[in-house]
């Protein structure tokens, strides 16, 4: 029972890292820049949230499979088969949960006052320094909220993961897959235990997020960052 839990955590964490690295730049660009076709691009980014996971799984299979452009390239160049590995599960989870990270981060970036970035510019800062010292810290609460939601969604990913990573115990069998196949094979006790575990995990994640955004976030917005509790004059 421990194996699917650890694997699920590992896959979800890796998916969050992927979403963070990819999502940050995209969200920042979309929050600030206007360009023709922006609406279409944005719809594409959000699409994984509304499409059935099986459709995403099918798409990923076409892309990453042995004969797909990415899968074939990896196989020929590095002799690496992506499909039916835990990396495939990471990619499936990352794709499915990406819109959650994107939307939170984009809203967070859009909420950062442009004048603050301009002020930093007049103070001689380069764009990278402005991003790291002004934009990112101010958008951080929203980004973190996005990452946490992302993690929760990745933890529960089933359809796309099954299609691209399969159900290999100890290798790609995450909690949701283990539950499904436990029920299939009549192992109701095993299924029940895993259901309890993932429900608790997800509840704790969302509960913490709610608690944190109520307390820390509010205090943070009102006063200073770290010592928001310190007394007002």
């Amino acid at each position: 029972m421990l194996e699917p839990i650890l694997l699920s955590l590992k896959v979800a964490l890796a998916a969050v890292v992927v979403d963070f690295l990819v999502g940050l730049g995209i969200a920042r660009t979309m929050a600030r820049k206007e360009f023709p076709g922006k609406n279409a691009v944005e719809s594409l980014i959000i699409l994984p949230m509304v499409l059935p996971p099986t459709v995403l799984g099918y798409g990923l299979l076409i892309l990453l499979g042995k004969r797909g452009p990415v899968g074939n390239f990896l196989l020929e160049t590095f002799d690496f088969q992506l499909i039916f590995t835990w990396w495939a599960a990471v990619i499936a989870s990352a794709v499915v949960s990406f819109p959650l990270m994107y939307q939170s981060a984009k809203a967070a970036f859009a909420g950062v006052d442009v004048t603050l970035e301009q002020a930093a510019r007049t103070l001689g800062a380069r764009e990278m320094r402005i991003f790291l010292t002004v934009t990112l810290p101010l958008a951080w609460p929203g980004i973190l909220a996005g990452l946490v939601l992302c993690f929760a969604r990745a933890l529960g990913e089933f359809g796309a993961t099954l299609m691209v990573a399969g159900n290999i115990p100890g290798k790609t069998q995450t909690i949701p897959l283990a539950i499904y196949f436990a029920v299939e094979s009549g192992d109701t006790d095993g299924a029940r235990n895993l259901v309890l575990v993932i429900t608790l995990l997800s509840f704790a994640t969302v509960f913490w997020l709610n608690w944190w955004s109520r307390n820390k976030l509010q205090a943070w917005k009102k006063g200073g960052a770290c010592n928001a509790e310190s007394q007002h004059p």
Partner: peptide
């Protein structure tokens, strides 16, 4: 190298 005092101060809140 221009100092700029913005109308709404634009102090970094964090």
């Amino acid at each position: 190298h221009i100092g700029y005092v913005f109308q709404d101060y634009a102090l970094f809140p964090h």
